[in-house]
Design a protein around this nucleic acid. Structure first.
Lengths: 225, 225
DNA sequence: AAAACGTTTCAAGTTTGATCGAAACAAAAT
DNA sequence: ATTTTGTTTCGATCAAACTTGAAACGTTTT
C-alpha cells in the first residue's frame, strides 16, 4: 500500500467521492431526472436510465448513503428525490462546465431545450425568454446575480396572484444565459403550471406550452412566442 | 449492446463525464491544489498527489482535453492552471455537498480551516471573519448573493489602494458561510499578500497570518483575531 | 558533446466497480 | 390464501481505467 492522497486531504471535504458519485452515467441520468424536484419511484428511474431494477437500486442506495437523495416509502413504492438544493446547485454548476454531446448537432429533443424546469423553476429557451421579456418590460431589474421586482412588476405579479419575491439569477446550461431562479422563479412556475399554460411531459423534465399558454403568455406577460 | 442513457440525454451537457473527471482521487487532489489560482508544474502536482509523474501526466492530459485546465510551457516545465472560474465554481459547489472525512474529527491541519484562498480570494475562517467585520463596520452591504461597498467602505478601501469593486458572496465549505469573492475579494487578497499580512504555506492553499498581519488587520480593518 | 532533468508515450499488470441472473422480501391485488 | 408487482440482496462476471516500469523526447546545464 502506498501513501494515498486521502492522507493529504484528510481534513477537507471528500471532493472525489462526491464527484465520482455523480460521474457514473447511470447515476448522472438519475440525478438529472430528479432535478425537476419531483420524487420518482425506483422502477421508473431504472427504466429512465436504461438499466435493470437491481442496478438502479444499487445506485440509489449509494446516493442515499452519501446524502445526495432522500427516500420516502409509500406502500410498495419508494420515491426518491434530491436531498436538498445544494445538490441541485452542484449539478447545475457541473453542467456549465460539462461538454455538450458532440454528435448529433441538431437537437434531438427540441422540447427539452425549449422549456423545462431547473430543479423547481423555469429554464430552457422559454425560461430565458421570459426572463428577458420581464427585464425589457421593466417588471424586474437585474443587479448582477440578483433580480428585484420593480413597482410595476410588483403590481403586475400581485394582480396575477404571484408573490413578487426576490429572485436569484440562475445560469442555464442549454442557453448559457440567465433565467429567473430563487423564490420568484418557483412562484412563477407554480402559476404557469396551475394555469395549465405549460404542462409536464410524462417522466421528463421537459415542458410543453399549451395553446392556452401561448395566448396567456402573450397577453399577460407580453411574450412573443 | 443495450440502449445507453447517452441516447436519452444526447443533447444535454455530458454531466457524468465532467463529474467523473473530478471524481478520480488523483485528479481531485490536483484540481483542489489548482484552486489557489496558481499555475503548477506537472512534477509538483504528481508529488502533491502522491503518484508517479507518468500517472499525473496522463491525468493532466485528460483534464486538458476536457477543458478543465490549461497549460503553459516554459522551458522544460509545463505549468497547469484551472481553465476558468466556472471550473472553480463547480469545484466549490461540489465541496459543499461532499462529505467531510469522517475519521479524525479534530482538525488535523488547523491552518487550512483558519485561512486559505478559494480560487483567488480569501476563504476559510479568516475570510469569513473579514467578511463579517466589514459588514459590521458598514464597509459593505449585502443583498443576498451580492456585496456592495458603502461610501464609508469605498473611502476606506481606496485609501489603502484597494479598488472598491463589487463582490460576489461565495459560500465557504469549511465554515459553510459566506465570504467575499468576485473582484473585490481578489483585490483584498492581493493587498494582504502584498503587505505580507498573510503568506502562503508552501505548496498548499493554506495561508498563515504574520505578526505584522495581526496588527494590520486589527488597526486597519478592526478585526479581533 | 554529454549528462541531467522534466515530461510524455507505450505497454504491460491490476484493481475497482458496474452489470445482471437468481432469489428473497414486502405490499397490493385477485 | 395465492398471485402479482415493486424493490432489494447476493453472487459471479466482465469491462473500464488507474497504475507503473521502460523508453523516448525536448530543454537546460556542465
Amino acid at each position: 500500500m502506498k501513501v494515498t492522497q486521502q492522507e493529504i486531504a484528510q481534513h477537507e471535504p471528500d471532493l472525489s467521492s462526491a464527484a465520482a458519485l455523480i460521474g457514473e452515467p447511470t447515476r448522472a441520468t438519475i440525478l438529472t431526472a430528479l432535478m425537476t424536484g419531483l420524487a420518482l419511484p425506483a422502477g421508473e428511474l431504472a427504466e429512465l436510465a436504461g438499466v435493470s431494477p437491481q442496478t438502479a437500486s444499487m445506485h440509489l442506495q449509494k446516493l442515499l448513503e452519501n446524502n445526495m437523495v432522500s427516500v420516502e416509502t409509500q406502500g410498495r413504492h419508494r420515491y426518491y428525490r434530491l436531498e436538498n438544493s445544494d445538490v441541485a446547485v452542484a449539478l447545475e454548476a457541473l453542467m456549465v462546465i460539462a461538454p455538450t454531446q458532440p454528435k448529433k448537432r441538431q437537437l434531438p429533443n427540441q422540447d427539452m431545450c425549449y422549456a423545462r424546469t431547473c430543479y423547481d423553476h423555469l429554464a430552457g429557451w422559454l425560461g430565458v425568454l421570459l426572463c428577458q421579456t420581464m427585464l425589457e418590460n421593466n417588471w424586474i431589474t437585474q443587479q448582477h446575480l440578483e433580480f428585484t421586482p420593480t413597482e410595476l412588476g410588483k403590481n403586475k405579479l400581485a394582480s396575477l396572484g404571484i408573490q413578487p419575491s426576490q429572485a436569484r439569477a440562475c445560469l442555464d446550461w442549454t442557453e448559457r444565459r440567465h433565467h429567473i431562479g430563487g423564490e420568484l422563479g418557483r412562484n412563477i412556475t407554480t402559476y404557469l403550471l396551475e394555469q395549465k399554460w405549460v404542462v409536464r411531459h410524462t417522466s421528463s423534465r421537459a415542458l410543453r406550452v399549451t395553446e392556452k399558454g401561448i395566448l396567456g403568455l402573450r397577453d399577460v406577460f407580453g411574450m412573443r412566442l
